[in-house]
Simulated assay, not measured.
Amino acid sequence: MQFDRESKGFSFSKEGPLDMRMDPHEELTAREVINEWSEKKLGEIFREFGEEARWRRAAKIIVEARGRGSIETTKQLADLIAQSLGRGFKKKLHPATLIFQALRICVNRELEAIQKALPKALEVLSCGGRIGVMSFHGLEHRIAKAIFREGATVPAQNKYKEYVQKPTLRLLSKKPQVPTDEEVRFNPRCRSAKLRFAEKIR
């Protein structure tokens, strides 16, 4: 699995290069983002893609640190974040968790991918076909929820009291499925996963 390979640079618990590319043919790496992007741009991705409350502080300390020498490895970055930010409000998370999430999403354009792929999947799904979407963090959860809800919503009536469109989806459960405690013990990475199902009805 890519996340377990030190050479990919996804994990802050293992020493590796700041890469984070799912596709090695892509040009942008986490190293380039960390060492070359402005403090403002770093702050923006930490806030938007990591939902890190201390995004300004994180961006500032990275820019200050790289002024003393480039940041090349996952451990360098993780240690820098841990020493500078500490545990904060989310004490169960390593201080670098949300920063690494933001970098991975940015480098791989993950949100753009789901925003494009899910509507296309629904478009080619046959009537009566069912689709399941598993998301792993709040940003993905909101996108999947919004797209499913849009397809399952009855549009407002026009002035002739006729529905211009009809729903194309039927949600198969009111709430997404989440892992059990036993599943989380077996696979800790699944702890934030949510699984949604829908059926195409027209």
Rank of each mutant, 00 (worst) to 15 (best):
V164E: 15
V184Q: 08
K40Q: 13
G16F: 02
V184D: 09
E26D: 08
Q165R: 14
E182H: 05
R202G: 15
L28Q: 00
A117W: 04
I201Y: 07
K60G: 00
E182Y: 00
Q177C: 11
H141I: 03
S11M: 05
I34A: 00
L98I: 00
K14T: 08
M1E: 09
Q76D: 15
R104F: 08
E110L: 06
V133T: 09
P95A: 02
G86K: 04
G69L: 09
D4A: 12
E183R: 03
E199Y: 10
R54S: 05
A59M: 06
R31M: 02
I147S: 05
K194L: 11
E15Y: 03
I45F: 04
G69Y: 05
E182S: 12
K161Y: 15
N158K: 07
C127W: 00
F10L: 11
R202T: 13
K14L: 12
Q115S: 14
R170T: 07
A58S: 11
I34L: 01
K120F: 10
S192I: 04
E64Q: 13
K166V: 12
F12Y: 15
F100I: 05
E72V: 04
W37V: 03
K14A: 07
R57G: 00
K174N: 13
L111T: 07
K200L: 14
V184M: 12
E110G: 06
L172S: 10
M22P: 00
F46S: 01
A198C: 13
Q165F: 14
K90L: 15
I114K: 10
R5P: 04
Q76N: 12
F197G: 07
E51I: 01
F89K: 15
S38G: 05
A102V: 02
L125I: 10
E64V: 06
G138Q: 09
L118D: 03
K166N: 13
F197S: 10
E150A: 13
T97N: 03
R191Y: 07
R66G: 08
I143T: 06
E44Y: 04
L118C: 07
S84L: 03
S135E: 11
I34M: 01
G86A: 06
E140K: 12
A53L: 07
R196Y: 15
R87N: 11
E39H: 03
G128E: 13
R104E: 04
Q157G: 01
E123K: 14
V107W: 05
S192P: 09
L98Q: 12
A78C: 11
G69Q: 08
F12S: 02
L171C: 08
F10A: 06
P167A: 08
L98C: 00
M20C: 00
A156E: 14
G86C: 06
Q83P: 00
T73E: 08
K161D: 14
K8A: 01
S70P: 10
S135C: 12
E44A: 11
V154K: 14
